[in-house]
Nucleic acid binder design. Structure first.
Lengths: 402, 402
DNA sequence: CTATTTCGTCATGGCGGTTTACAAATTAGT
DNA sequence: ACTAATTTGTAAACCGCCATGACGAAATAG
């Protein structure tokens, strides 16, 4: 009699549906969408050879996707080779769109991205949201969303989902903001305060920034650490092209990694957390500046002019970041570390000390540290693209909702 | 014309083969093996309801697995319910076996585990391997393997694979030991020095220990951090039931996380690494003891007797571990932290300071820290079981090699 | 102008799970 | 005891999905 010794599910089959032919079909539809989306206009034959199915099979898949409005036939390819030219297929520019929204500390932004990855509508509003209650903020955001929605629908797009980036911790349900220090929000369910209709996903802006880096960045390693500093210092861990969420969804709290364990007390209860040395407030204080509007721009400006005090503050922040990242890199062995968000603006003065600290403390070739090319747009684009990816990942789910 | 904006592959489809019916069949065979293995003897009907296929489909899958010798029919179940009793199915006890081996600093061990998870043969030899060259060590290991192999074959088992746990860093090819400080091995390919035949997998002993914890531990969270201290201090990160390897396969180097960045210089080039405070040598030194045989037992004994110096040394090591783990927990938000390997022996004196440090420095409920129940057997069992899991994960691959 | 190559499609077939039906084996009820 | 109800395992017919092979279409090469 065999005892139940193998207690855990096989890796990666966490929620695998029963493996039936319909599931197979759905996955293959997804493969077609992904390859066409990733490698530009392609003929059916080209898609077939790339995903390993036959031309006949791809034909039926493509037919279904065209009927659903997710794929478009662009017409005959201009051939350079022998043989009959293929008919170019492209992801539809007039089908579903991903609506991304961002609640920043001093702005609100919304955009619509089509399946091709193009931003088709956008709306931004500068509003100081610090310590403002959720209702009015989300009311204004809803207005912006409706504006973008109207614009997008005018172009033939329809919303496949709404993703909202917030500067705070989000619960696993992807709807409730557990804590957003700079907004002063606690346990706020955004579900009821936003337009009904499109499926809602709320996540940390650092996470969406990391996904934007993964999907849109210049180089796209599948294992990296994305560090951003809008609120405190957040990191997002991407493993094998997937975000690491953690048990409660709180993974990536780099700001409270101990750097000098006997250092100044931190709001989190600890001492000497990274935020005490490289957080926005700490850096401003060390630089002898007052907190205020556009603080990063101020820092960058002064550093550019050669202000020794500012440069020294940024140098020290880089050192602290380097120490904290040494721990993270030792633990995760990522392909690279990417600095995003506000950090990208001051990167030139942060990087030297950061890199040398990291190199000094790790054996072998140091983990490369790069700066995100997306700048402050990352989280918003990541949010919108997350919806688009959802469509590519399971086109069949969306096809019924046209 | 749509530009190639979606550059990355869909998450989790890194190496997905073309999704064809044969792949479906293989995955379903795996599902059957996993459910029967995990939930003891089951009837075809019970399996069907669990994996969501029909009884008819499961019948054909089971037939194939029985023909391949991977499943056994135990006979009619004793029924408590109405209806025709099912025929109990169990994973075969006389089919393929996983051979696990361990190269320790002062011992060699080999065991054979059948598909039911039972250890069916074992051989251990105490040998001081410190700074001994690979050839003689692996020669002796090969002899032990042959002994275990003979014993297992006598019981009707055949080796489906050989997995070797080593105290060092292993390259991504899972054959070459890049660096094993305590053995003094550098860039050693174990491929040619071990018995040919069964497919070989070499990995860090901490990783295998973590897998053992995942597969055999009392509680089995799917996201946890497994900390062990055979050589230096290694951690293994398990995310969603899967080991995190990292880019070069070096993930989990907890020993070189900076704890007090201005502390004593470390061999790695850094300063104040965890190993300087909680490594075996450091703790022995702080306790006023000389390095020697069975050092952990010595420490535990003295601590038990109430030796103040030893207790203080362990207390301080716990504090350092707590600081390093604070960083790791903040970054990964695991369900729990498990202390394994040599650490389990001294855990009683390590835990109080470790836990309090961790609790003090993290907000919300602290991440639970537990001690592995597997003790020093973990890596060996994990190695053997990794082979067994490989069979459960793809029974079709092994069925042909009977 | 013909041979060659490649593309897209159609008809056929094989494979895999589902559906439906049914016999076998047990319990529950009278 | 005997029947009704329930559950199991299997067999036959069916449907969906991809593979195979053949074909016409549309380009290039000679």
């Amino acid at each position: 009699m065999s005892a139940p010794l193998h207690r855990t599910r096989p890796a990666g089959q966490g929620r695998a549906l029963p493996d039936t032919q319909q599931g197979m079909r759905r996955r293959n539809l997804s493969r077609v969408m992904h390859t066409v989306g990733a490698e530009g206009p392609l003929s059916r034959a080209a898609v077939a050879s790339r995903i390993g199915l036959t031309r006949a099979a791809v034909s039926t898949l493509v037919d279904e996707l065209i009927r659903s409005g997710l794929l478009e036939e662009l017409g005959p390819e201009r051939p350079g080779r022998v043989g009959r030219p293929g008919s170019a297929l492209a992801v539809s520019g007039n089908g579903p769109a991903g609506i991304g929204a961002e609640v920043g500390v001093d702005h609100l932004a919304v955009c619509a991205v089509d399946l091709r990855g193009r931003v088709r509508a956008r709306a931004v509003r500068h509003v100081p949201n610090r310590d403002r209650s959720p209702e009015p903020v989300l009311g204004e955001l809803t207005a912006l969303i409706h504006r973008v929605l109207a614009e997008a629908e005018g172009e033939g797009l329809w919303p496949a989902g709404l993703a909202v980036a917030v500067p705070g911790l989000v619960a696993r349900d992807a709807r409730t903001v557990v804590r957003a220090p700079n907004l002063g929000w606690l346990d706020t369910d955004l579900g009821g305060l936003l337009p009904p209709g499109p499926p809602l996903t709320v996540a940390n802006e650092a996470n969406f920034g990391a996904l934007a880096e993964l999907w849109l960045g210049e180089e796209t390693p599948r294992d990296f650490l994305h560090v951003s500093a809008e609120i405190g210092i957040g990191a997002a861990v991407v493993v094998d092209g997937r975000l690491l969420h953690g048990n409660r969804g709180f993974a990536g709290e780099l700001g409270h990694v101990p750097v000098w364990p006997d250092g100044p007390a931190c709001a989190c209860g600890g001492r000497g957390c990274l935020e005490q040395y490289a957080g926005e407030e700490a850096v401003l204080r060390a630089a002898g500046l007052e907190p205020g509007e556009d603080r990063v721009g101020l820092l960058a400006g002064r550093a550019e002019q050669g202000d020794a005090e500012v440069r020294r503050a940024l140098h020290d922040a880089g050192t602290a970041l380097g120490i904290a990242l040494t721990g993270a890199v030792n633990l995760l062995d990522p392909q690279s570390v990417v600095l995003g968000g506000a950090l990208s603006g001051v990167a030139p003065w942060l990087l030297p000390s950061l890199r040398s600290e990291l190199a000094r403390r790790t054996t072998g070739p140091a983990c490369p540290v790069t700066v995100s090319a997306l700048g402050p747009e990352g989280p918003l684009l990541g949010a919108a693209h997350s919806v688009v990816r959802g469509v590519l990942d399971d086109p069949a789910a969306v096809a019924g909702r046209v």
